[in-house]
Design a protein around this nucleic acid. Sequence first.
DNA 1: CAAGAATCCTGTCAGC
DNA 2: TGCTGACAGGATTCTT
Length: 279
Amino acid sequence: MPELPEVETVMRGLAARLEGRTIVRARVNRPDLRWPMPAGLAERLTGAQVLSFRRRAKYILMRLSGGDSVLLHLGMSGRMLIGPNRPNQETLHEHVVLETDEGWRVGFVDPRRFGSIDLVRSDAEDDHRLLSGLGPEPLGEAFSVKSLSAALEGKKTPIKSALLDQKNVAGLGNIYVCEALFRAKISPRRSAHTVVGARAARLVPEIKATLEEAIAAGGSSLRDYVQPDGELGYFQHAWQVYGRENEPCPGCPGGEACAGVQRIVQSGRSTFYCPKVQR
DNA sequence: CAAGAATCCTGTCAGC
DNA sequence: TGCTGACAGGATTCTT
């Protein structure tokens, strides 16, 4: 489920509990997730001090003493659990477990195993094959009307698909693309190269605002970004169009010729939008 | 080359 | 209640 705001919130929760701590124990419970686990992962983690965290797109990077960074992706179903360590604490699909010098336990749970973990040298994080091809961060200055227009130039694919392409902008997922396009009043079916001028000028700020509001909601609704059950980073959201097929469109005045929120499929993914408001 | 489909995997939910 | 099929918030890899 995690998109950029959820990943950001998970990362902040990890940072709040782990920065400065030493990993006293690490267990890796299976040889692979999406890809094989990096060689010697448990050994490289054990005894290392956690220096700092950062997020790149939907990846979390955890810098360790000794020069390694852990590169973590939650995939579709990945979750981080955190809490005081207790004996015989077992969770289904918990693939990696850490314990800190404070007696805290951190578990990476991922039933579908689309997530991934790798090690990368801290001084060359962005050279990793999973990061080197990514486009600009949507919340950074490098993501602008100008940069987006350049990325979309000549692309006939629908704007919805183009925004999901991490080479164009890194970190947007299905939900936030639907929501941002609704807020910018742009049809998800529109050819990407036609999103220029006033439309591009609306879209970029709406993408940023949609993400920023979600991150703020995560920060304000959770103490230390942790839910009562120890799960990091998830929070309730009120989407305007996502998951609301056939419900009234929140942008249309009641009554008139609005058929409500429609669901279509674009390159295999559900898109929710209002054909009347979004052009 | 660009664009779309297939793919990895398990859990959940709607419908019968 | 149990079964079946559709679907899930990702992103790479394969085809066309």
